[in-house]
Design a protein around this nucleic acid. Structure first.
Lengths: 122, 122
DNA sequence: ATAGTTGTTATATCATAAGTATAACAATTA
DNA sequence: TAATTGTTATACTTATGATATAACAACTAT
């Protein structure tokens, strides 16, 4: 699993890290049951503080993407709650779609992008 | 144009404001060429500082949603750049779609939500 | 048993961003 | 002339992100 952090980005490091773990799980680079690097190891690898990685792991655990196994560390364990996931997706999507409509993007164009991303991330 | 700010939200006030203006423009509650409330008036109405509203207006201007006419104040003027808008939409969407795939959402389910939002926001 | 590693928690510090508070400016409007 | 427009400047407080040590209980390996 490769990690690329942009230190000049306006996006928080732990958010960048979380997003890349999303992508890694979606693309099965990280599979269910697989262990993630330890917070200290990953922090050392990408050159950030331990707590920054820990924050990413903590939010991922709270949002049902990881579980902590005392023996194996942080383990990919996706908690499936379809209704909740649909509701969150809709909430996250609303301002984005509104923005797109303002800019004249058609429903078909947006759905085309969704298709591209599913192709890219599945 | 009604504005609702959640002061307990983790989302910045000027971001909440910007998102609601996205929705207002998309739903034609705010039409092309129409004037927005003055920064002072809107700030007073929703109970925040003038500069918070000004920051929302400034980012909207920078991103091509408003223009400033000295005579009429902040005016809705959407700058259409299809390629740029598509690229931004894809960039914003990527981590969201990755998240959805992790949670087992199908391409059809996501596109269904897009349909709902276009219905709701057009 | 000892030493090391796991995630986690607790403080503390620093830098940046968000939000507030006044004040002023040039341009426009009534 | 007086008031309002967006904008800029300065200063302050608060919240958050990131870093830095340090420690803890639970587990692993030697």
């Amino acid at each position: 699993m490769l990690v690329e952090i942009d230190f000049n980005s306006d996006e928080a490091i732990y958010i960048q890290l979380r997003n890349q773990i999303f992508v890694a799980i979606a693309t099965s680079q990280l599979k269910e049951g697989e262990s993630l690097p330890s917070v200290r190891a990953l922090a050392d690898k990408i050159g950030v503080n331990m707590h920054t990685v820990n924050k990413a792991y903590s939010t991922l655990r709270q949002d049902g993407f990881l579980k902590v196994d005392r023996r194996r560390g942080a383990v990919v364990a996706v908690d499936i709650d379809k209704l909740d996931s649909m509701a969150k997706m809709k909430a996250y999507l609303r301002p984005l779609i509104a923005r797109g409509i303002c800019k004249g993007l058609s429903k078909e164009e947006v759905k085309g992008i969704v298709d591209q991303l599913y192709e890219e991330l599945s």
